[in-house]
């Protein structure tokens, strides 16, 4: 089985989000970038398929040269090869189109992306990619087994979960639960050394027009001070929630 893991390169979860250039750009100053957490769950599951079922893993990112350390980290974790599409990822559709070309050229059976990236987009790429390539799609995937060309996937639904039987080629939107937190891998020395010898191909993008653009950013309004209520006076809390906040 040939697996493609889509990696988005995002600010570390502890990052304070600031904007530059009149609030039109994300301010990368002092920000650490990491593999998008949902993609990390996906990559870990891909490693299971590699080790248990002999699958091969290619990781891909649509981004500029500064994302290469993130791809190298994925190689150090155990991916076999990496592809970087040399372009600024302008919107989800643009990225999905670039990835669709990679999928068609590489004939991947299984594409693992994340449910959403924690930076701009909000869950567009996997569903768009599946639709563009005509593959089956399972979003919010928390379990995946593959036998031949049949896949059994579990997806989270509101208030529970659902088991789906489907066929390859398949795209999943991975999230927490697909693998256990304790099984996430930190690259070791040997992995890092081996990663240096693995191929990281840089390809030029297809000409695609983005469908959307962000014209400016805004931060949420500053929060007023908290109103403290004494633990001996919980009636006051109830009264505030009823009369002032009007939520009960």
């Amino acid at each position: 089985m040939k697996i493609l893991v889509c990696i988005s390169h995002v600010p570390d979860t502890t990052s304070k989000i600031n904007f530059a250039n009149n609030d039109t750009e994300f301010d990368k100053n002092g920000v650490q970038f990491v593999i998008n957490p949902n993609d990390e769950f996906g990559l870990t599951r891909a490693m299971w398929f590699k080790e248990k079922q002999g699958a091969s893993i290619t990781v891909v990112n649509v981004g500029t040269a500064d994302t290469e350390p993130t791809l190298r980290k994925a190689l150090a974790i155990g991916a076999d090869e990496a592809i970087r599409i040399n372009a600024t990822p302008t919107d989800g559709f643009f990225v999905a189109k670039q990835l669709a070309k990679v999928v068609a050229d590489g004939q991947y059976d299984l594409v693992i992306a994340g449910r959403e990236s924690i930076d701009y987009n909000g869950g567009m790429v996997p569903g768009m990619l599946a639709t563009l390539t005509g593959a089956n799609f399972v979003n919010m995937c928390i379990g995946l087994e593959v036998e031949g060309t049949t896949a059994k996937a579990t997806r989270e639904i509101d208030g529970g979960k659902e088991e789906i039987e489907t066929t390859l080629p398949l795209v999943i939107g991975a999230q927490k639960g697909l693998v256990e937190e304790k099984d996430l891998r930190i690259p070791n020395m040997r992995g890092i050394m081996m990663a240096r010898k693995k191929q990281l191909a840089v390809l030029e993008p297809e000409a695609v027009e983005a469908q959307t653009q962000i014209t400016s950013f805004e931060k949420p309004a500053a929060k007023g001070d908290v109103k403290l209520v004494s633990p001996d006076n919980l009636d006051e809390l109830i009264s505030l929630l009823h009369n002032e906040a009007k939520v009960i």
């Binding site: 909000g122 979003n139 919010m140």
Partner: peptide, 23 residues
Amino acid sequence: SSANDKFLAPMVAVKLNAGYAPN
């Protein structure tokens, strides 16, 4: 923005050739 809505929206967008704004 339920689990099903978020599953469907990007698929509908591509089929309709429409730009998608989530959230």
